[in-house]
């Protein structure tokens, strides 16, 4: 199975975002679900919006915050799986 970090993922057409400070609130309209992103989650979201894979966001986050890339990737996989299960992001 392809690593979710390298999959081509994009925001669902049913998902809307509103930036508040360094964070983001997402709305999945059809499900009626609101989802909050912290600063790290917002960075990954912005990468997906621009068509870049999440892996590149993980690499820049690990470098900027001086944390283990493996730890960032593990958190990001869980995060993306959650967004996907709530149909906030979809595979292309």
């Amino acid at each position: 199975m392809t690593d979710i970090l390298t999959q081509k993922l994009r925001p669902s057409p049913d998902a809307f975002a509103n930036a508040v400070g360094n964070e983001t609130v997402l709305l999945q309209v059809k499900r009626g679900v609101y989802y909050g992103l912290d600063e790290i989650g917002t960075r990954i979201w912005e990468h997906l919006k621009s068509g870049e894979p999440a892996l590149s966001a993980c690499e820049s986050i690990a470098a900027e915050f001086g944390v283990s890339l493996d730890a960032v990737k593990a958190d990001a996989r869980a995060f993306l799986a959650d967004l996907k299960s709530n149909e906030i992001i979809v595979a292309e």
Binding site: V20, E23, L27, V29, Y34, G36, D38
Partner: peptide, 26 residues
Amino acid sequence: AADAKACMAILAQSFALDPTDSIRAR
């Protein structure tokens, strides 16, 4: 309060006639 959590807390306590109305939800 942290921004995103505050926004979501406000939305959770907001009234709607039809929660499935996507235009009003946005």
